[in-house]
């Protein structure tokens, strides 16, 4: 029983981080229409910077602040590069983010070395009792700080004018421009926010698990799975991240740790197959939408037969309301 509880706790902890990564995907995708494969690199950059500086004798607060800054700077850098690439082929931005993930990883290896780094613990080592579970203080910090971050994020989106402008830009970049909002600036902010969330997740994770220079891309993919499972919505992505974390942890505990990635990516495949399979409700909804759109478009009767043979979208991504190249 206690093993199960420990595995669940560990799963919730990693799930929180995956949820933060997933939120980064959602923020960037909804505001700019881009899929950012470098999302995990922001986590690695933040975690490694903070760990290395703390190991070098910096005060923890300074090291953590520097780590966060490094993440945000990486995010802004990538946003700037993507801005320069506007007007190219529509697949160019994704390829650029993939390349950026590799570049960030290689830079991290050159700067921080080959070995994964652990952020030296700054809380007492004695485990604390939280209800029925015993957890290390850093795990408790990870969980509660993530919750606090989520609360902060909710406040920004629901209660501040900046949050409203981010949402406005996500809904219609042209509409945002027509009220005087600079969509390019908001897009850069979205990248900074996504990078900051990932960096915070990495810094919270670093005292619990060593973070390696090469873990960026696989973390990014897990964040993507969380975003897809969460249907690109903020609360759904967090829940999906927790689900993935717990699944991963249970797989590592009861099967073997090598199995956990197989399981997480298997979940993605199953979900994508389910969403696109002929027996799922999604396809019927898609077909109804298409038929309605077709009737509206050309004023003809019910949709024609070949709708049945058309391939539905393979990834359940909401239509981007905007594309940066259209600006």
């Amino acid at each position: 029983m206690s093993v199960l509880l420990q595995l669940l706790t560990a799963g919730v902890a990693i799930g929180m981080v995956l949820g933060l990564l997933g939120l980064g995907w959602v923020v960037v995708y909804r505001v700019s229409g881009l899929l950012n494969l470098a999302q995990g690199s922001f986590l690695v950059v933040g975690a490694l910077t903070a760990s290395a500086l703390a190991a070098a004798g910096w005060p923890h607060a300074a090291a953590v602040g520097a780590g966060l800054l490094a993440s945000v700077a990486a995010g802004l850098l990538l946003a700037g590069v993507l801005r320069l690439s506007r007007g190219g082929h529509h697949t160019a931005p994704v390829i650029i983010t993939l390349g950026a993930a590799e570049v960030f990883a290689e830079i991290c290896r050159q700067v921080f070395g080959n070995d994964p780094l652990l952020l030296p613990a700054f809380l007492p080592r004695a485990p604390v009792q939280l209800g029925p579970v015993t957890v290390a203080p850093h795990v408790a910090l990870l969980v509660f700080a993530t919750l606090a971050l989520l609360g902060l994020l909710w406040w920004v989106f629901e209660r501040t004018s900046l949050g409203k402008e981010l949402q406005a830009c996500a809904d219609s970049a042209e509409g945002a421009a027509l009220v005087g909002i600079n969509p390019g600036l908001i897009r850069a902010l979205a990248f900074a926010l996504a990078a900051g969330l990932a960096g915070a997740g990495g810094i919270l994770l670093a005292p619990v698990t060593p973070v390696g220079w090469d873990s960026g891309l696989s973390l990014a993919v897990k964040g993507f799975v969380a975003a897809v499972l969460g249907r690109w919505r903020y609360p759904g992505t967090i829940i999906a991240g927790l689900f993935l974390g717990v699944t991963e942890s249970l797989a590592a505990g009861y099967l073997a740790s090598a199995w956990k990635d197989v399981l997480v990516l298997g979940v993605l495949l199953v979900v994508l197959l389910w969403r696109t399979a002929p027996w799922s409700g999604a396809i019927r909804r898609t077909m109804r939408r298409r038929q309605a759109a077709r009737r509206r478009a050309d004023g003809t009767g019910p949709g024609s037969r070949h709708l049945l043979t058309q391939n539905p979208p393979t990834v359940d991504i909401p239509e981007p309301t905007t594309h940066p190249r259209q600006e």
Binding site: K164, E165, A168, D171, S172, E174, G175, V179
Partner: peptide, 21 residues
């Protein structure tokens, strides 16, 4: 604009506020 370019997830009051930002 002809296609309105509204912000679907915002309320009417939020549209007015953002218009006068």
């Amino acid at each position: 604009p002809e296609n309105r370019c509204l912000f679907g997830s915002l309320t009417v009051a939020e549209h007015l506020a953002i218009g006068a930002r």
